[in-house]
Design a protein around this nucleic acid. Sequence first.
DNA 1: CTTGAACGTAGGAATTTTCCTAGACTCGCG
DNA 2: CGCGAGTCTAGGAAAATTCCTACGTTCAAG
Lengths: 211, 211
Amino acid sequence: MEHVREELDRLILKGGYGYASISRLLGRNPAYVQQFIKRGSPRKLDDEDRKTLACFFGVDEQVLGGPANPVTDGMIEIPVLDVEASAGFGAVAASETAHTRFGFDERWLRHLTSAKSASLSIVGVKGDSMEPTLSDGDEVLVDSSDHGSRLRDGIYVLRSDDTLVVKRIAIKPGGRQITIASDNPAYPTWHDMDRAEVHVVGRVIWFGRTL
Amino acid sequence: MEHVREELDRLILKGGYGYASISRLLGRNPAYVQQFIKRGSPRKLDDEDRKTLACFFGVDEQVLGGPANPVTDGMIEIPVLDVEASAGFGAVAASETAHTRFGFDERWLRHLTSAKSASLSIVGVKGDSMEPTLSDGDEVLVDSSDHGSRLRDGIYVLRSDDTLVVKRIAIKPGGRQITIASDNPAYPTWHDMDRAEVHVVGRVIWFGRTL
DNA sequence: CTTGAACGTAGGAATTTTCCTAGACTCGCG
DNA sequence: CGCGAGTCTAGGAAAATTCCTACGTTCAAG
């Protein structure tokens, strides 16, 4: 806790501002900051003051005794691709800008995947072929860097002709062959497909659903 | 600013907790909360206290006078409440850990609910009582403005003693009585509960799941 | 050198926060 | 009914905060 006072002292000294002017910055009496540093009078800085100072000095609030986490911007926005409107994948990205999007906490996302945000995208699920796991209208987060040799059991977005479909893929042990299934038993399952035949867009790592 | 006191008063009254126990939750003297509400003694709640309360009641900090959820470029950020931390009365355990958050497109959200962002919050689902609809680890978006007389069939977050639980609620036609069920048939269903007995935190309007 | 305006310092006053406590009240129990 | 344990309330004490002020210092202008 003493550390905060020293840090603030250093910052003020380095900038050559003087205690009085900083006090005024906070809208307090001129002795306020001096008291805080030398006398330890307010045990902790008020929330507002801390914010003001952090902003002024351009340092993280944490340095001045703020919440123990770096709350600052670690938000990654992933756009929802309008699959209906386009045939292909790449063509979409550049198209209309009015797409809705979701924001994910950076750390949360990093915990989920090591993929760059550029290789992540969100597409809407159409149809009931993946019930009960995925329903019509769900939005799935797709990691397009997770394919090829890294293919493993799980749910993937595939390209079939000019539309995207979501299927469950199972790897046949040791082989080049895979099984493509729909969770909904009313739909067929294809066994022993060759990997090369299947156009994998990416792995589904998360989804959201409106209730 | 008075609004905050009224809001807190309402929350405490609705839950039937009493001022004293909430004061203890904050690790303060028993008269503390009463003083805040009736006498307006601490002009504003301490940052830590606000966080603890917001977490306990499952509402956004904004409701209790906290900073507004950042809205950048049509994107509304909603923090995930650390429900684990509010382990109950007496045990404060104000968590230091980082709160992750999700960002939602403003239009998308507006389409989903008319609720203000202040009345939205996200909590993690614990346990398997709502399988297969909700699984352990899912994150649910809760609209805390959707309760009281507007209660209707659906999935809700309820407070049971000192923890938050997610259950399915069905309204008995025309009556004041409701049914509380878990989707997992291994768990019991309670019929003909009186509405007043149940502490509704809010309605679950969306959820996300990691695959 | 003198002056004045700024500052930092520290004592202590004014104010606010926080706590303690006693009184009135409710509720369940015998 | 009386009792005990809990509450809410309000008065005021204790502690912390915020502010005010006087004093010493520096420094540049006169």
